[in-house]
């Protein structure tokens, strides 16, 4: 077996995730989350619900996210969720989930398909009103939606009034990061 280890870089192209502070807001790149999509096979809702409960994978309703002890998840499309888990322990997240769900679900690794930014601080709705048509102010904590920001299809999860997660296409990490920073600056 070849004797080497490949060294990963973050979506923004660095060794370590980037953290930026603009006014009251902190924008943090997150490289420590593993992702997999989980889709029901036809007619297997019962099996998937049982398996999910046993494995501790939440299956939130449309437009929502939910957290468990290890796994969190947000709704993507009818009968499909994105499952989040700590990267350190679940780097090959699909290998963790497959045994739990067997052939009742289709599971696809998504970890590196996305770049994740967490935005923390008060008044985030003022920042996002420059980026997205999603009504963040009105949305309850736990709301999750797909939305367009600067032409990029992203997932937005409102964890709380002061914490929002954005998943955007990883290849456009720099463009998305730039958009977040510029929007923050123009609000201040």
């Amino acid at each position: 077996m070849p004797d080497f280890i490949l060294k990963p870089i973050t979506a923004l192209g660095h060794d370590a995730p980037e953290v930026d502070t603009v006014g009251p807001w902190t924008i943090t790149e997150r490289a420590d989350i593993a992702l997999a999509s989980l889709a029901l096979r036809r007619g297997r809702l019962g099996d998937v619900q049982t398996s999910a409960a046993a494995a501790g994978v939440p299956l939130p309703p449309a437009g929502a996210s939910a957290s468990g002890a290890i796994y969190s998840a947000f709704w993507m499309t009818p009968e499909m969720w994105m499952v989040e888990a700590p990267y350190a322990s679940h780097e090959d997240i699909r290998a963790h989930l497959l045994p739990a769900f067997g052939d009742a679900a289709s599971i696809t690794e998504q970890t590196d398909a996305w770049v994740r930014f967490d935005l923390a601080g008060t008044g985030l709705e003022r920042l996002f009103e420059r980026l997205s048509n999603f009504d963040l102010a009105k949305a309850p904590a736990g709301a999750a939606t797909r939305t367009v920001m600067e032409h990029l299809g992203c997932y937005l999860i409102k964890r709380s009034d002061t914490l929002v997660t954005i998943y955007g296409p990883r290849s456009s990490a720099q463009s998305l990061h730039h958009a977040l920073i510029v929007a923050a600056q123009s609000v201040l």
């Binding site: 070849p2 080497f4 999509s37 889709a39 029901l40 096979r41 036809r42 007619g43 009968e79 499909m80 289709s106 696809t108 690794e109 998504q110 970890t111 590196d112 398909a113 996305w114 296409p169 990883r170 290849s171």
Partner: peptide
């Protein structure tokens, strides 16, 4: 019974082509 998801961005994919492609790849 079909489920779809894009994985374009999840994988970095490289074409390795030419008479020595196999020798090269075998090393990694």
């Amino acid at each position: 019974d079909v489920q779809l998801i894009s994985t374009t961005e999840a994988w970095a994919q490289f074409s390795v082509a030419g008479p020595n492609a196999r020798q090269l790849l075998q090393k990694v």
